[in-house]
């Protein structure tokens, strides 16, 4: 049942590589922070699934608002002369690793439960 999301990821990568649209060089920085935020949201969603409190509305809203807000904040920081970009990288980076750790824990506990049931 994990195959469908994986296929979705591959299809997305394919679509993205076939698109002729190029991100303008000035927006690459904001785009990267948006990608980081969305990556964090996705991993958060996966973790929620494993912990059985998954909510698609939360995931979808988090996915888009996080990405947009991160990009906006980075942009604002550039305008103001404050490196909010770094703050966003830091926050999302930390959360990313926390999410990954939680996912690992979740998967391990699931495996153990399965073994004990056997």
């Amino acid at each position: 049942m994990w195959i469908l999301p994986l296929l979705g990821l591959l299809a997305g990568a394919f679509i993205g590589s076939t698109l002729t649209y190029e991100v303008p060089p000035t927006y690459i920085k904001y785009m990267s922070i948006a990608v980081l935020a969305s990556l964090d949201s996705v991993l958060g969603g996966v973790r929620a699934l494993l912990e059985n409190d998954f909510d698609s509305t939360v995931l979808l809203s988090g996915f888009f608002t996080n990405a947009l807000l991160a990009a906006l904040l980075a942009y604002l920081g550039d305008r103001l002369g404050v490196d909010l970009y770094l703050a966003a990288v830091f926050v999302f980076g930390v959360r990313l690793f926390q999410n990954l750790a939680n996912i690992r824990h979740g998967l391990l506990s699931q495996l153990r439960n399965n073994k004990q049931e056997k």
Binding site: M1, G8, I15, G16, M31, S32, L60, F63
Partner: peptide
């Protein structure tokens, strides 16, 4: 949840490959 995750992953894939190329 299936559909949501798939949709999110799809968008994620597009974003990632775009960013890859741009970078």
């Amino acid at each position: 949840w299936y559909l949501t995750i798939t949709a999110v992953f799809l968008v994620m894939g597009i974003l990632l490959s775009l960013q890859f190329r741009a970078q």
